[in-house]
């Protein structure tokens, strides 16, 4: 009797969380999987033509937007490029900046604040600023390029013509790396300050060079944080969307590249906007994204076991 009562109480206390999670996490999760297989699903009427792989077929084989753009050659390619390029670069940069910050006693707080600014600034707003900075006709970057005698570069594309894919991707990556730095710097900095100073004193007495100290002591001691950031950043990169929207999809005349820069999440949101069967296709995209992230995380957690030394 007693056991039952205490169980009842336990469930009662857990109820608010459980109910919220069921409504906003578990139900949508399950529902997404189901929806992904409903062909020509109309979200408002609830009608669909049948259960099958139609949404996935559209995703992989023939795009409903543009026959040349399918999942693999646009969405997956862009997303994978973002992840593979931006994650290692941002982690390496953050590590170097954090170590540099940690070794200068003066101005540390001021510089820390400067590096931390992107974190507290609205992503969309920053993206728009980037769009203005990299504007083909009057942007800051091209003004600088011209100052040094170069020809204006087509970064984002304008009414003068479309920009090369690589240029637009470069802008996107710069933005993503810059936006990702503050959190990583902060994490590294706090971890660095947690490392026992005696390791460095011991290294100093043994005449270890700065570079060797960094490579043989600092990096291994930070390996748990590096792995953590690798995993979370990869997941984050696969969900990249804000940056694409804010740089390439804001008010004209910017953003001629929007479609070729599209990511997986971009596809999901874009599909949602389309009435006939869009929700089903969005769900299919979400399921594919889910599977990709799951596989990558599984691989990473296996690899990281070898990388984290202690």
């Amino acid at each position: 009797m007693e056991v039952k009562q205490s169980q009842w109480k336990a469930w009662l206390y857990l109820a608010p969380t459980i109910i919220l999670m069921i409504v906003f996490t578990f139900y949508p999760l399950v529902n997404t999987f189901i929806t992904a297989f409903k062909e020509n699903y109309n979200y408002f009427s609830g009608e669909y033509s049948g259960i099958g792989l139609g949404n996935f077929e559209i995703l992989f084989v023939r795009s409903d937007v543009n026959p040349d753009m399918n999942f693999i050659n646009i969405y997956l390619k862009n997303t994978a490029l973002i992840a593979v390029v931006s994650v290692p670069i941002s982690i390496a940069l953050a590590l170097i900046i954090a170590v540099a910050l940690n070794s200068i006693p003066k101005f540390q707080k001021v510089l820390q604040t400067i590096f931390f600014l992107p974190y507290v600034t609205n992503t969309i707003a920053i993206g728009m600023v980037f769009a203005v900075m990299f504007d083909d006709k009057s942007g800051l970057v091209n003004t600088l390029v011209q100052m040094f005698g170069g020809d204006p570069i087509k970064w984002l594309g304008s009414d003068l013509g479309t920009a090369p894919y690589v240029n637009s991707l470069a802008v996107l990556l710069i933005y993503i790396v810059w936006d990702a730095l503050p959190f990583k710097i902060l994490l590294f900095l706090s971890s660095l300050q947690g490392i026992d100073k005696q390791y460095y004193q011991a290294a100093q007495i043994d005449g270890t060079s700065k570079l060797r100290t960094f490579g043989r002591i600092t990096v291994p001691l930070l390996s748990p944080q590096i792995v953590y950031l690798m995993i979370t950043s990869f997941i984050g990169a696969f969900k990249e969307y804000n940056s694409v929207i804010s740089i390439f999809d804001n008010a004209r005349p910017y953003g001629y590249q929007q479609n070729t820069m599209a990511t997986i999440v971009w596809y999901i949101y874009d599909s949602l906007k389309r009435v006939d069967g869009g929700v089903g296709r969005a769900a299919a995209g979400a399921v594919v994204l889910f599977v990709i992230i799951m596989i990558i995380t599984a691989i990473q957690s296996q690899v990281s076991k070898r990388f984290v030394h202690y």
């Binding site: 026992d196 005696q198 390791y199 004193q201 011991a202 007495i205 002591i217 030394h309 202690y310």
Partner: peptide, 17 residues
């Protein structure tokens, strides 16, 4: 590093990795 000393720290400071 130029003094030619060996120092054993109180908590040893062995590199854990």
């Amino acid at each position: 590093e130029k003094r030619g000393i060996g120092l054993v720290f109180q908590n040893y400071a062995l590199y854990p990795h």
